[in-house]
């Protein structure tokens, strides 16, 4: 097929701008969509209704949402339902997402908080029916407030898992194992000052993650 290109807009023959194209001609198979797009680009595209951004958002934050839901509801099956409900309602309500006001994961976590609240509402209705039938009740362990705490814990744990060594091991010993700084230094045979400066830098990094991705109100 010979294509005679008729340029309805305007076309010009010019030299390519100075730098060589970042071409990757040898790509063996269809590349994943927008693998290297920044979170902000994914957020803009999501708000704009571009379908690839939904899949990309799920790929980036699906496990985060699922883990928050699993830790809040206490079981993986309920977490599946919550995670599905979060992404479905986020996509249907994407016109309400404003990338200028919150990062996409923060907005998704805000929806997660509401879907978990729905989950507990359904549970307590069920509970009341059981109590009305004369059975003993179990305590309702979660409140809406604590979903934010769960989200903070999961975001922190997620960020810890992304730290390089030895920061990662140091922070895991400090947070998961509650070791003191001298204990960590001894365990890893590192100078105490080195341990403290790794902890200091890691904490700064954790806080910026929470500021960006923490639950949006």
């Amino acid at each position: 097929m010979t294509l005679v290109i008729d340029f309805p807009l305007r076309a010009t023959v010019v030299d390519m701008p100075t730098d060589p194209l970042p071409l990757d001609r040898g790509r063996p198979e269809a590349s994943r969509i927008a693998d290297s797009a920044t979170d902000a680009v994914v957020g803009n595209a999501f708000a704009d209704g571009d379908e690839w951004a939904l899949e990309e958002a799920y790929r980036r934050w699906g496990a985060l949402i699922h883990t928050v839901a699993r830790r809040a509801t206490g079981n993986s099956h309920d977490a599946d339902d919550v995670a599905q409900a979060v992404f479905v309602s986020a996509w249907r309500g994407r016109h309400r997402y404003s990338p200028d006001r919150a990062a996409l994961p923060a907005w998704l976590l805000g929806i997660t908080k509401r879907r978990i609240a729905d989950h507990w509402d359904a549970r307590s209705r069920e509970q009341r029916r059981i109590e009305a039938a004369g059975h003993a009740s179990e305590a309702m362990p979660q409140t809406e407030e604590s979903v934010e705490q769960v989200a903070d814990r999961v975001l922190i744990a997620d960020e810890l898992s992304r730290l390089d060594q030895p920061q990662r091991q140091i922070m895991e010993l400090a947070f998961f194992d509650d070791l003191t700084h001298p204990q960590i230094a001894e365990r890893l045979a590192l100078p105490l000052g080195t341990v403290k400066s790794h902890i200091r830098r890691s904490l700064i990094r954790l806080r910026s993650r929470l500021e960006v991705d923490g639950v949006a109100v």
Binding site: A63, H66, R153, L160, F176, D178
Partner: peptide, 15 residues
């Protein structure tokens, strides 16, 4: 929050 987190809070792969 950090001290109350555990390895079980680390997200795995999306399902």
């Amino acid at each position: 929050s950090g001290r109350s987190s555990s390895p079980d809070d680390v997200p795995g792969d999306p399902s």
